[in-house]
């Protein structure tokens, strides 16, 4: 997708939402986080957001303004699939499931991330 390299998603980091410390992380990262979360099982949007905060121990807080577009985009690409269901407290909610192609994409993203991550780490910690 041509815009993926240009358009940057805003994700706020830091535990207290009152003290935002914005940093721009490539959108691919958010996509990867969402895919990874959904790999745990079907969940609705708010659930995804909760789970990301929970797993990253509050490092990443994904606001709905970023989350929903990401969900739409992933669904558009066929990586996740939405269906309506009931929430824990009997509310209507749209649940998303990872599709096989989404699982493949997650693997790809993970590999990419690991590669980039280790490269950056080597750069930061290595000897010149």
């Amino acid at each position: 997708m041509s815009y993926s390299s240009v358009v940057l998603a805003k994700i706020q980091t830091g535990t207290p939402p009152a003290m935002p410390e914005p940093s721009e992380i490539l959108q691919g990262t958010l996509d990867m986080l969402v895919l990874r979360t959904l790999a745990l099982g079907p969940m609705h949007g708010l659930g995804v957001s909760d789970r990301i905060r929970q797993i990253t121990r509050g490092v990443f807080v994904v606001k709905p303004g970023s989350l929903f577009p990401a969900l739409y985009r992933l669904e558009q690409n066929g990586w996740i699939k939405g269906h309506w269901g009931e929430s824990e407290n009997n509310r209507k909610a749209k649940y998303y499931t990872l599709t096989p192609s989404g699982r493949a994409q997650l693997t790809k993203e993970k590999r990419k991330w690991n590669k980039a991550f280790s490269a950056v780490n080597r750069l930061l910690e290595g000897e010149f």
Partner: peptide, 17 residues
């Protein structure tokens, strides 16, 4: 329409919470 419904559902859950 579906997206609006989804946001509405999300709002309801947030309010509950």
């Amino acid at each position: 329409q579906e997206r609006a419904a989804e946001i509405e559902a999300c709002r309801a859950m947030l309010v509950d919470r």
